[in-house]
Design a protein around this nucleic acid. Structure first.
Lengths: 347, 347
DNA sequence: CGTCGATCTGGGATCGTTGCCACAGGCTTG
DNA sequence: CAAGCCTGTGGCAACGATCCCAGATCGACG
């Protein structure tokens, strides 16, 4: 359709509004009005401006515009780790929705470091982001951003339920359900592999697990709960330690996809048969879980939908800064696969 | 350390340079000098300014600064699909390097749509990005950006070798190597599953495949080459079609990770044993390939390193816009696993 | 003692936009 | 025909930073 190069290949300075005005023989005011479509401008003049803009390959300077209008069309996004498919999907959902609504996404992965997260938040303040979506590590970042008048949506985890919008899933209920699933198969000794219990996610997942056990009249054995760093090799090592003991659980619940991978690799390394020797369930579904034999029973949360919802909520908040904070809770479902069976190898 | 909230929780306007100047009783000029550390400013004055800035929670307005200095500290990144681990890792590498060098990353996933890609490029021009890293779909986007004086690095694929920096791997050589690997095992009928042959990647991968066959004195059978859309279900369907034929190849080469997944699922659906009934190799390594039984022999390219190199190259280019365009070629290695064996089930 | 340089400070133009305001015609209306 | 309205246009002051330049103060040096 339009020649994107703007027949401008040999010019060395980027075209500015002034250039367009000069080329069309009109004032900057009129030119601006013609291009933005706001305010009176004669049809003939409008055409001349449009033609000149096209001919010069003019693209309005978004920063100058933001500065003048005091509104920005870009949002900051702060996730833990793009290499984890959960966060990548989350970012994909946010980015798609942002583009659809005419926003630019500035993305930072903080590697789970509080320090990085804070400095990224400062960078967002620096660019005067219209809002920020964050998977927070503590209350610090949301608090800081709110103190700077920047709308914030907490996603996946939330630390400021009374002050901040959030999009999460009902971690406790779904963790309880999947634990009940194991209990109903006859398991009485169920291990939990978890990375942290301080964020709302870990806390809720553990609560779901313990409540399910308690409701079944079982005592929670702290020795069956392993806290591992949230990376595959650390998880694997921690699990090998535990499973190598004489008396071991008949089922294990991994609280996220990385831990599940560590768990799975540990079980393999120890030569344990799944599900005969050990049943396995995972919070978070991942590609490989439907490909290994047997497949892993998992909790599937739609991270893309989570991201889309977060972006929608952020834009609502930008549109109405004084509305009361809302917490959106999305559904997650259990995908039963072959990794769970009755204990004792009764296949 | 420093109170990030800046004891400013109750103020409603964001602090500006003028506010800091007022608070410290100095002019904006001096305040600016004190904060940026450029030019003369008395030590006592500097301290007063810093204290006032801290106290107000002042964060410099990056856009105003960019506008005035006519340089931007943010880069645009344009990839195909964040849900594909290859692109997610690429973005992770770029983002990490960008942050380390003090740049902000604006990220867009174009879903492989040319149209989306062009409009994203225009958005980058609008924000006056300091540079752009792109996995291009055609020459159009790099060309457009260059015509707008914006430094561009093409990554993974490259369409403007003579005008544009690029970071790639040697697709042809490594594709040839892995085909030779299959030939050396005794395979004489090797299928190729590929998504496109127009981009440089597909073209080179196919060239590697055909050259390996030709060098072995084999004729290239067009019937063994399937072009499928680059998504799992389409690839699966295309493969099922082919493998269901009476005479089928003894080995298959999938040209990327999505195609490999489709291939793998198709083989499973048809009840084919790997590698006895069919050997499988993949361009791109993925998590699941080391977890399924047997593991998939794959070409591992370090997407994170690719991204880091691209960012480094972009910054070099920004620093020296007139240097001749360079093409960086990174190594990729073959990871042998259990999915490849001699044909005919001689395990 | 006058001049020079070094140190320190503030005024004001500027980056590319937008939007308020004034103004100039032409038209309708009482 | 004066008063009012609608249309179309341009001038100019912002937005928040930087940075050039002029001026001021002070010590040193010829």
């Amino acid at each position: 359709m339009s020649d994107l190069a703007g027949r401008n290949g040999n010019r060395n300075r980027r075209a500015t509004l002034k250039d367009v005005a000069l080329a069309s023989g009109l004032s900057q005011s009129t030119t601006s009005r013609a291009l933005s479509g706001e305010g009176y401008v004669a049809e003939a003049a409008r055409q001349r401006v449009l033609a000149a803009a096209e001919q010069l390959g003019y693209v309005p300077h978004a920063m100058a515009r933001s500065l003048r209008k005091q509104v920005s069309r870009s949002v900051g996004v702060l996730v833990s780790d793009l290499r984890n498919p959960f966060y990548a999907d989350l970012a994909a959902g946010i980015g798609a929705q942002a583009r659809a609504r005419g926003y630019t996404m500035m993305l930072v992965a903080d590697q789970g470091l509080e320090e990085e997260q804070l400095s990224a938040a400062q960078a967002f303040v620096g660019t005067r982001a219209a809002g920020v979506i964050v998977t927070p590590l503590s209350a610090a970042v949301p608090q800081y951003l709110l103190s700077q008048q920047i709308p914030v949506v907490e996603v996946d985890r939330h630390f400021l339920p009374q002050a901040c919008d959030s999009v999460t899933i009902d971690n406790e209920t779904v963790a309880r359900r999947i634990t009940e699933h194991l209990l109903s198969l006859g398991h009485r000794s169920i291990g939990l592999l978890i990375d942290e219990t301080a964020w709302t996610t870990g806390e809720a997942r553990m609560a779901g697990y313990t409540h399910a056990l308690e409701d079944a009249g079982l005592e929670v054995d702290r020795g069956l709960i392993i806290a591992a760093g949230s990376d595959v090799t650390a998880a694997r090592a921690a699990v090998v330690d535990m499973l190598a003991r004489r008396v071991r659980p008949t089922a294990m619940f991994a609280a996220n996809n990385l831990l599940a991978e560590g768990l799975w690799r540990a079980a393999h390394a120890l030569g344990l048969r799944i599900p005969e020797d050990l049943s396995i369930v995972s919070f978070d579904d991942a590609e490989w879980m439907s490909m290994v034999e047997p497949g892993i029973t998992a909790i599937a949360q739609d991270a893309v939908a989570l991201g889309e919802a977060a972006m929608d909520q952020l834009l609502d908040r930008i549109a109405d800064p004084d509305a009361p904070p809302a917490g959106i809770v999305l559904e997650a479902r259990i995908v039963p696969r072959g990794s769970t069976a009755a204990p004792g190898g009764s296949h």
